[in-house]
């Protein structure tokens, strides 16, 4: 699990720090941060990542639009995407997964749950 690269897309610095904190359990992992969908797409042009963790409600471009664009891009579509959001209703979850997200986590997050979801996705990808 060494040298993994994650892209965290979150407008909240608190959540970015909390998610980064949890991801440090993957020793040596590299974290790239983006504050919204547009920023994330820009970062994806220059940075190679193994997984995207994105919020939904963000200014400029929301997480659902980002998921759609990433899944439409032949170079990026294989990247696993985890949505981490306050939107916990079943229809929101269904919508996120239907757009191509690989997992959906409702806030507040449990670090152990987040790590399990990520580990499962990485194993599935191998």
């Amino acid at each position: 699990m060494d040298s993994l690269r994650f892209l965290i897309v979150e407008d909240s610095p608190t959540m970015r720090q909390l998610i980064s904190f949890s991801l440090k359990r993957f020793k040596g992992c590299k974290i790239v941060e983006a504050v919204d969908g547009v920023d994330a797409l820009k970062k994806l042009q220059t940075e190679e990542v193994d997984m995207i963790l994105t919020d939904i409600n963000m200014p400029v471009m929301d997480g659902l639009k980002l998921v759609t664009l990433v899944k439409q891009n032949p170079k990026l579509r294989e990247l696993p995407i985890v949505i981490i959001t306050t939107e916990g209703a079943q229809e929101d979850r269904d919508r996120g997964l239907a757009l191509g997200a690989d997992a959906y986590i409702s806030k507040p997050i449990q670090s152990s749950h987040l790590l399990k979801v990520i580990t499962d996705l990485l194993e599935k990808k191998r």
Partner: peptide, 8 residues
């Protein structure tokens, strides 16, 4: 942010 994201 704390009240929304951490407390829910």
């Amino acid at each position: 942010e704390i009240v929304i994201n951490l407390i829910g």
